[in-house]
Simulated scan of single mutants.
Amino acid sequence: MSELSVDERKKQLRIAVICSSNMNRSMEAHRLLEKKGYNISSYGTGTRVKLPGTSHDNPNVYAFSTPYNEIYEDLYRKDRNVYRQNGMLNMLDRNRKIKNHPEKFQLNNDVFNVILSCEERVYDQILDDFNKRKAKAFTQCHVINLDIPDNHEDADIGAIVFSQLLDELIKDNDLDANIDELLQSFEEEKKRDLMHSVVFY
């Protein structure tokens, strides 16, 4: 990508951002990065999509194929005041403007250059999935983890940090060669701990 401008590299670099349910953290990052012109997709790694219910022991659980709009309408019917107050309806309203439904990473066959994960458990699930795949083209992919608590405020902050990180990475003409130094410099500047692994498609 050495001959390309930053804007051209933004379009060429394929990026995925992943949390557990493809609801909160990954979708806020998806929204912001898409707005900034990045070639971005988002996913979850969980078995099912889980959202808080009206009590701790009674979460709302959905299949990944359930449209955000259907989940919105389901929560609205169940208790619109509670789910408006805890931010679930606002979150789902944002999500349904971005794409149709949450997607499960392990079922996806697209090839990415950079994968951003939002917690260590998700990072481990991503690496485990790559270990089960058989690399065919040996295309290199960087998996980078930033721990982001799963609440609306931290999701906003995490999306900004991901955006700042990509803004630094995209400037480099030889990302594969220089990423370790770039990540170390970013950690020191932002006082954020990152995890990084290289995987292959």
Score class of each variant (00 low, 15 high):
2 S>P: 11
6 V>C: 01
9 R>N: 01
9 R>S: 02
13 L>S: 00
14 R>Q: 09
15 I>E: 02
16 A>D: 05
19 C>L: 00
22 N>H: 12
23 M>V: 14
23 M>C: 14
24 N>A: 12
27 M>Q: 15
28 E>C: 07
32 L>R: 10
32 L>G: 01
41 S>T: 13
41 S>Q: 12
43 Y>E: 05
45 T>N: 09
49 V>C: 02
50 K>H: 08
50 K>F: 13
53 G>N: 05
61 V>K: 09
62 Y>H: 11
63 A>M: 14
63 A>E: 15
64 F>G: 08
67 P>K: 04
68 Y>C: 06
68 Y>I: 00
70 E>W: 01
71 I>C: 05
71 I>V: 07
72 Y>C: 07
74 D>Q: 02
82 V>D: 04
84 R>G: 15
87 G>W: 12
88 M>L: 15
89 L>A: 11
89 L>H: 09
91 M>D: 06
92 L>G: 10
94 R>P: 07
97 K>L: 14
97 K>I: 01
98 I>Y: 04
99 K>D: 00
101 H>K: 06
106 Q>H: 15
111 V>E: 13
113 N>K: 00
114 V>H: 06
115 I>L: 06
116 L>F: 07
116 L>R: 03
117 S>Q: 12
117 S>V: 12
119 E>Q: 06
119 E>A: 11
125 Q>R: 15
127 L>I: 03
127 L>D: 05
128 D>V: 12
130 F>H: 12
134 K>C: 08
134 K>S: 13
137 A>C: 00
143 V>P: 03
143 V>H: 05
143 V>T: 03
145 N>M: 03
147 D>Q: 07
148 I>F: 02
156 D>E: 15
157 I>N: 12
160 I>F: 10
161 V>A: 03
161 V>G: 01
161 V>E: 05
163 S>P: 08
164 Q>C: 03
165 L>T: 13
168 E>A: 10
169 L>F: 05
169 L>W: 07
175 L>D: 00
177 A>D: 02
181 E>F: 13
182 L>W: 00
183 L>K: 10
183 L>H: 08
184 Q>W: 13
185 S>T: 11
185 S>W: 01
186 F>P: 02
186 F>I: 10
196 H>R: 06
196 H>Y: 09
197 S>C: 03
197 S>H: 12
197 S>V: 04
197 S>E: 15
198 V>K: 12
199 V>H: 03
199 V>W: 06
199 V>L: 09
199 V>N: 01
200 F>H: 02
200 F>K: 04
201 Y>V: 09
